[in-house]
């Protein structure tokens, strides 16, 4: 049976303000989806709410993983069930080494029923695997001894996110503007890396403004979000069109969503 992440009529508010207004999206494992849309259309909100951010309130609709409603699960449970998000702005955790953090994370995700204080993956096995993945991503092994995202450059942060994804091997991954702040070469490397670590085994949702990240990860579907809704879905050609021509055609075609975009922009 194909594993599925299914979002149905999802309405989400933050501090009482509606941001998502009825999102429908089905991602099967093995598929790549691109999510595009102007700033403030709700793309990152969708990513965060799928991951289980506590500040986002689901007011209507549901998120299902293989038929089970996970809307009430916390981020820990979702991560252990195989959902991952590469953050647009990953948080620094000073004093915590990448390797220690990743060893905990990897153990928990691979052994979802693990309780605090129980055994971690054997150090030797973990080290070996981490080193392999870092070589694959052309990262210096020194990286593992640095503190999580502390003093990382933009490019280093994004590569660290991809490294985490490589170690955690999620079923479903959201990449929230993993290409932002990267130069062309870095985007290319990131794009290749995602493909190399087995992106085709996952269900991937790539949130992006550009089409470069899509070069090596050709989307099966491209969705356009406007005013808190997915208004149009197409193939990879839609991604290229939006990158080249912008969103004027979309706004003209979906006036109701364009009005909602205005209202949401003014409410901020």
């Amino acid at each position: 049976m194909t594993e599925t992440l299914k979002i149905t009529n999802l309405h989400v508010s933050v501090e009482g303000k509606p941001i998502l207004r009825g999102v429908n999206l089905t991602i099967n494992r093995g598929e790549t989806h691109a999510l595009m849309g102007p700033n403030g259309s709700g793309k990152s909100t969708l990513g965060n709410v799928i991951m289980g951010h506590p500040n986002y309130e689901v007011t209507e609709g549901k998120i299902e993983l293989n038929g089970e409603d996970i809307s009430e699960w916390d981020a820990t449970e979702r991560a252990r069930a195989g959902i991952f998000m590469a953050f647009q702005r990953p948080m620094a955790i000073p004093g915590v080494k990448m390797a220690d953090f990743l060893r905990h994370a990897t153990t928990n995700v691979r052994n979802p029923s693990r309780k605090e204080g129980e055994e971690l993956i054997p150090m030797r096995q973990f080290r070996k695997e981490l080193t392999e993945k870092m070589e694959q991503l052309r990262m210096d092994t020194e990286f593992a001894r640095r503190y999580v995202n502390d003093g990382f450059s933009g490019g280093e942060m994004k590569r660290a996110e991809i490294l985490q994804m490589a170690m955690l091997r999620p079923k479903f991954a959201i990449l929230d503007e993993t290409d932002s702040g990267l130069d062309v070469d870095a985007v290319k490397l990131a794009s290749q890396s995602i493909a190399e670590i087995g992106g085709d085994q996952m269900g991937i949702l790539i949130i992006t403004h550009h089409d470069k990240l899509l070069d090596q990860n050709t989307p099966d579907f491209t969705h356009v979000m406007l005013g808190g809704k997915i208004v149009e879905t197409g193939g990879v050609e839609l991604a290229h069109e939006l990158y080249t021509d912008g969103y004027d055609r979309i706004r003209a075609s979906y006036p109701e969503a364009a009005v909602a975009e205005q209202v949401m922009a003014e409410a901020v």
């Binding site: 916390d74 991560a79 994370a105």
Partner: peptide
């Protein structure tokens, strides 16, 4: 949220942030 999104429990995440804080 960041640490929990990587499978750490809330207590484990707090504990890790505190350990990092006193690491020096």
């Amino acid at each position: 949220f960041y640490l929990m999104s990587r499978g750490l429990s809330e207590a484990e995440a707090s504990s890790m942030i505190v350990s990092g804080f006193i690491e020096p």
